[in-house]
Design a protein around this nucleic acid. Structure first.
Length: 483
RNA sequence: CGCGGGGUAGAGCAGUUGGCAGCUCGCCAGGCCCAUAACCUGGAGGUCGUCGGUUCAAGUCCGACCCCCGCAACCA
C-alpha cells in the first residue's frame, strides 16, 4: 500500500490580495508536497480561500460589489499568484468557503454536531444566550478583561454590546483530551515552543465558544437556526475535511485523513491547536498528525505594514527574480519556523551570488567545457565516482533552510573540483581524464538538480534535461545576473 | 508578576542531541582564465549581551541580571 501525505495551508482571508507572508506559507507547503511526491508518496496538497464574515461583506460594499463578486475576484487573484506562471504552487485542490459543496458540508457538520455527545455524555452544542462585547474586527466576543480602555486591544475600537441567542460548543469537555494528545505527541505541534504555547492556552482554560452568529449576514446559513450563520472559524477550519468530500463522500477522506502536516502562521495557532481538535473529536475523526506553526517575519527590520509601505507582492518578486529565484529567496533567508527578518534589500545580492554566480555559472561553465572539449558528448557515468554524500538535512523535519545550505556546499564542491583539475589544461594532454572530471562535475550538478526539485522545480527540470541528454550544449543563462 | 522573539567577526545571519566557532556580503593578498566581470586559495576580523553554576568539555544545559524588538490597523 502506498504511503500517503496530506498537507494543508490555511485558507487565506480574501479581504486583500496576497503578500509575501501568504506566499511564504504556501511555498513551504508546496516544497513539502513536492518532496513527498518525489518520494513516490500519494500526496494531496490543499490550499484555498476563506471568504465569509462581516469584514468581507464590508470590503465588498466598499468596492460596490456583492460579497460573492468580491470573493470571486480576490480568490482569483490568489489563484493567479500561485499559478505556474507565477510562484508555481502545485496544489491538488483549491477550496473556497463559498463553494456550494463546502457550504452544504458545513451545514451537515453542524447537523452532526447537533446530534453528537461529548465524552462526558453532554450534547456538544447547546443553546445559550450570549450578551457580550463583540468586536467586528476580531469576529468574536471579547471579555471585559481583554479590553484596554474599553477598546479592543487588537483593533482599537469599541466593541458593540451584543445580545444574541446562539449555539455554543462545549469545549470544556474536550480540553483534557486535547491536552493529553498534545503532551503525548499524538498531536505533534512544532516548533516546540509553539507546543508549550498551546498547552498554555489550555491551562488558562479556554471558555466554550459560540459557533453561530445572528449578527453576521455573509456566511453559511444554518437551517436549524433560522437567521443564524456559522461562526467563520467553524466554517473555515472545516475546509480541511470538506475539501476531501466530508461528510457526504468519504472516499478521499478514507485515503488522506488525518492530515500529515498542517502549516500555518502563529496568528491562528489557537484556533488550530484547540478549537480544531475539539471539532474533530466531536465529529469522531482522528486528529492531524503534525501542526507546524511558523513565526511572522519582518521586512528589513520592520513589521510588514501597509502604512509603512513595505508589503511585498509576490508577483513583483516573480517578475524580478523569476519563479524559482523567488522561491529560493523566500526560503533561503532564515530557518523555517522562526520569527525572523526577510531582507528584501539583499534579494538582489543573494540572487546574484547564490543563483547567478553559484548554480547558474556552474552549469554554464560545465556545459561549455563539455561542449567545447568533448564535442558535447555526455561524460556522466552512472557510478558514484565521487563517493557523494547524499544525506541532506531532512525536509521532513522542516529543515528547508539547512537543506539549501547543504546544496550550496555541493555547488561549491563542484566549483572546487573544476579548479583543482583544470579541465582546460587537462584537455591538451589527457582527454580521458578530462572526460572523467567533467563527468564527475556533471554528476554533482545532476545531484543538485535532483535535490533542488522540490524547491526550484522549473530550473531543476531544465538542468536535469540538459545534463541527461546525449549531447550537452551550453544553453542560455539560468539566472541572468541582475545589475 | 501579561505573551512571545532576539542579543555570535564591519553588516546580515547559521550553529539539530554540549565536543577544535561557521555562512553570505564587505575588506586585504594571491591564483586561474573554462564560465553569467564569474570561479579557486590564503589572510585580517569574534573574551558567542553580563555575572555565576553544572561538566573532562557550554554559543549550546541551569540560575540571576542588562539591553533590543513584536503583540493598533493591513496580516502568513
Amino acid at each position: 500500500m502506498d504511503k500517503k501525505f496530506y498537507i494543508t495551508t490555511p485558507i487565506y482571508y480574501v479581504n486583500d490580495k496576497p503578500h509575501a507572508g501568504h506566499a511564504y506559507t504556501t511555498l513551504v507547503a508546496d516544497v513539502l508536497a513536492r518532496y513527498h511526491r518525489q518520494n513516490g508518496e500519494d500526496t494531496f496538497f490543499l490550499t484555498g480561500t476563506d471568504e465569509h464574515g462581516s469584514k468581507i461583506a464590508e470590503a465588498a460594499a466598499k468596492h460596490n460589489q456583492t460579497p460573492q463578486e468580491f470573493c470571486d475576484q480576490v480568490s482569483g487573484v490568489f489563484k493567479t499568484a500561485w499559478d505556474k506562471d507565477h510562484l508555481g504552487i502545485a496544489y491538488d485542490y483549491f477550496i473556497r468557503t463559498t463553494d456550494p459543496n463546502h457550504e452544504q458540508a458545513v451545514r451537515d457538520i453542524f447537523q452532526k454536531l447537533l446530534e453528537a455527545k461529548t465524552p462526558a455524555n453532554n450534547p456538544v452544542l447547546y443553546e445559550g444566550e450570549y450578551a457580550g462585547l463583540y468586536c467586528t474586527g476580531c469576529e468574536k466576543f471579547l471579555t471585559e478583561k481583554e479590553l484596554v480602555n474599553g477598546l479592543c486591544p487588537d483593533h482599537k475600537r469599541a466593541p458593540e454590546v451584543l445580545k444574541e441567542k446562539n449555539y455554543f460548543f462545549r469545549l470544556a469537555d474536550y480540553l483534557p483530551a486535547i491536552e493529553q494528545k498534545i503532551v503525548s505527541g499524538e498531536l505533534q505541534i512544532l516548533p516546540e515552543h509553539k507546543k508549550n504555547e498551546a498547552l498554555g492556552f489550555i491551562k488558562q482554560n479556554v471558555p466554550d465558544f459560540s459557533v453561530s452568529r445572528s449578527s453576521v449576514k455573509w456566511g453559511v446559513d444554518l437551517p436549524f437556526a433560522p437567521g443564524q450563520v456559522a461562526y467563520v472559524w467553524i466554517d473555515a477550519l472545516s475546509n480541511y475535511i470538506t475539501a476531501l468530500g466530508y461528510p457526504k463522500n468519504l472516499e478521499l477522506m478514507a485515503k488522506y485523513w488525518p492530515a500529515d502536516v498542517q502549516l500555518m502562521a502563529q496568528d491562528i495557532s489557537k484556533f488550530h491547536t484547540i478549537y480544531w481538535p475539539a471539532l474533530l473529536m466531536a465529529l469522531n475523526l482522528p486528529l492531524p498528525k503534525t501542526m507546524f506553526i511558523h513565526g511572522f517575519f519582518t521586512i528589513d527590520g520592520q513589521k510588514m505594514s501597509k502604512s509603512i509601505g513595505n508589503v511585498i507582492d509576490p508577483n513583483d518578486l516573480v517578475a524580478q527574480f523569476g519563479q524559482d529565484g523567488t522561491r529560493y529567496l523566500l526560503l533561503s533567508q532564515f530557518p523555517l519556523g522562526q520569527e525572523a527578518d526577510l531582507q528584501a534589500s539583499l534579494f538582489k545580492e543573494r540572487y546574484n551570488n547564490d543563483l547567478a554566480n553559484g548554480l547558474g555559472n556552474l552549469v554554464a561553465r560545465t556545459a561549455n567545457m563539455i561542449e567545447t572539449y568533448l564535442a558535447g558528448k555526455n561524460p556522466i557515468t552512472k557510478k558514484n565516482s565521487l563517493n557523494l554524500n547524499n544525506d541532506l538535512p531532512d525536509l521532513n523535519k522542516f529543515f528547508i533552510y539547512e537543506y539549501l545550505v547543504a546544496i550550496r556546499s555541493l555547488i561549491d564542491q563542484a566549483n572546487r573540483l573544476i579548479d583543482e583539475k583544470k579541465p582546460w589544461q587537462l584537455v591538451k594532454t589527457d582527454l580521458a581524464s578530462t572526460q572523467e572530471v567533467l563527468g564527475q562535475v556533471g554528476e554533482l550538478i545532476i545531484l543538485v538538480a535532483e535535490k533542488l526539485a522540490p524547491i526550484m522545480p522549473a530550473i531543476s527540470a531544465k538542468i536535469t534535461k540538459q545534463f541527461t541528454s546525449d549531447i550537452i550544449k551550453k544553453e542560455e543563462a539560468l539566472f541572468p545576473r541582475l545589475n
